[in-house]
């Protein structure tokens, strides 16, 4: 749905001179407006669409599983709350980023801080 960008109706109430001036300043606005025009998508049809689609679906599921496993591995690392607090306080970064960095360095706060000062 292309929304915003208006011009209809109201212009005829403007005095002609003013209208001309606006036209002078806003030439190009019409072209810009076309950017937001609504257009119907053209359809394409083919025979082995279904096969291709299901192959893509399978691949996606597999990748999602792998990613989950990686995240799980990272979540296994135990970290101390006060270490996270220290990092957030000293480096002025978000908690999520602080936790993530700390986990990546296996909970070693010194190494995590060194990495963050790079």
């Amino acid at each position: 749905m292309a929304d915003e960008e208006v011009v209809n109706g109201t212009e005829e109430d403007l005095p002609e001179k003013l209208q001309k001036k606006i036209a002078k300043y806003d030439s190009g606005a019409a072209d810009l407006e076309r950017v937001t025009d609504y257009a119907e998508e053209t359809e394409i049809t083919t025979q082995d669409m279904a096969n291709a689609i299901s192959a893509i679906g399978d691949r996606r599921n597999k990748e999602a599983l792998e990613k989950q496993a990686r995240e799980k591995e990272l979540m296994k690392v135990s970290i101390k709350k006060e270490d996270v607090d220290l990092i957030v306080q000293e480096m002025e970064i978000s908690r999520t980023l602080a936790e993530r960095t700390l986990r990546e360095y296996h909970g070693n706060v010194v190494n995590a801080l060194i990495e963050l000062t790079n």
Binding site: E5, V6, E11, Q19, D26, L32
Partner: peptide, 9 residues
């Protein structure tokens, strides 16, 4: 007056 005729309302 601009808003009425302008694109960027």
């Amino acid at each position: 007056s601009r808003q009425q005729g302008d694109v960027e309302a």
